[in-house]
Design a protein around this nucleic acid. Structure first.
Lengths: 214, 214
DNA sequence: CCTTCTCGGATACCGGCACTATCCAAACAC
DNA sequence: GTGTTTGGATAGTGCCGGTATCCGAGAAGG
């Protein structure tokens, strides 16, 4: 498969594929001679993942590169590979520690982790980007007078735990080690648009039920 | 409260506030004379909402303007106002109708709405941006060999319905009509980062439980 | 063999977006 | 009355995802 074929099969322009190659999101093809390179199904699969991350998951190109570098790092075991890939994902700003909303949010999040029994997450809290993102988001809600406390969040936490179990089950069903980690990354990123859309649809449905359509 | 005070109390630079005024995200202050304008707590509240939408919710400025214009439109009843505001939110690309993954996704989504009993959502499907977003996201997952069918999505749909009920309860508890709609918009937008962070944390926790930390 | 087309890589460029810096004249502060 | 501050207008900045152009090396056709 040459670059033009890869482009046609994926629906991505050759210019954009070249850009991804430059940026290291896609490994280079096997060089046949000075003007031709050969790509295989692995390249196609990776290209589809890249497009899904960037277009559907809205992951910045630089972040996608980091994440995929971890996915490809054969020197790491699966757990570390997955952890490293997931930790490279978020890029939220540092919370402003002077803000009382942040302090309150942090306390509630810690209480939430205790209620859920997520002891590992609690231990890793100072390091985890996901934990930081949660604090930032809850702080923003509290600033807007949304009284989001641990009790309110606990059911959502339990649901997300259930989702995570399914993610990992799905991951284990994949054949190769690289595919396993790819699958978990895709689940982490692409699940969000689905949930968001379901949430909005549910709001529309419930609003129509309560107040009518007119 | 003058512009400089508004800036200090909100932590947003005067230059940025001026930008939001220009862009129509923030109503102009009451002009006192040629060089001074007076802002009130309503402006502060709106400014915090704008910042939350843009920074935490990652809503583009142009989209936020549209959404807020609907929120402020007194000529509409609550239902329509809320609906218009929510429908202005997403800006996903049109799905490629030639793609078989899109056709499959559309069929599964329709089946899902039937299973959930969301009849209104089903009727509004051709119009609803949320429905379109869902089709796009599910199609992306299917292209990556994630077998997301209606049975798999149904529990998440039910949960999101529960979340939507809470959103609307919270909305009804607000005092003014504008605050009610603002509250629903904030819930639609700011809930996402919280869920995403909980999802990632749950993945970390479950991964650590299954495979250990190291 | 010679022409013409196509290939892939390197480089420069583009458009959108969220701000930001500068300038200005009016008006307060002392 | 003089220096500082105010808010509005305008132009500019930095980043980011992607695109257009140019190039010399081969492949394709006669």
């Amino acid at each position: 498969m040459r670059l033009a074929d890869l482009s046609e099969r994926s629906g991505v322009s050759t210019a954009t594929i070249k850009y991804y190659l430059r940026e290291g999101l896609l490994p280079p093809g096997r060089r046949i001679n000075a003007t031709t390179a050969e790509y295989d199904d692995g390249h196609l699969r990776r290209l589809r993942l890249v497009r899904a991350l960037i277009q559907v998951g809205r992951v910045p190109v630089a972040t996608a590169r980091e994440v995929l570098a971890h996915v490809d790092d054969d020197s790491l075991g699966r757990t570390i590979r997955l952890g490293a890939a997931l930790w490279a994902l978020p890029q939220d700003p540092e919370p402003d520690e002077g803000d009382p909303a942040v302090a309150g949010a942090r306390a509630e999040v810690d209480r939430l982790l205790g209620m859920l029994g997520w002891e590992t997450a609690r231990e890793l809290a100072p390091l985890s980007p996901a934990h930081r993102s949660l604090v930032v988001a809850v702080a923003a809600l509290r600033r807007l007078d949304f009284p989001w406390d641990a009790e309110l969040m606990a059911p959502y936490g339990q649901l997300m735990h259930e989702v995570a179990r399914r993610d990992l089950d799905l991951m284990e069903s994949r054949a190769s080690e690289a595919e396993k980690v790819e699958s978990a990354v895709a689940a982490a990123v692409l699940f969000q648009p689905v949930l968001r859309a379901l949430h909005r649809l549910a709001q529309e449905e419930e609003s129509a039920r309560r107040y009518g359509i007119e």
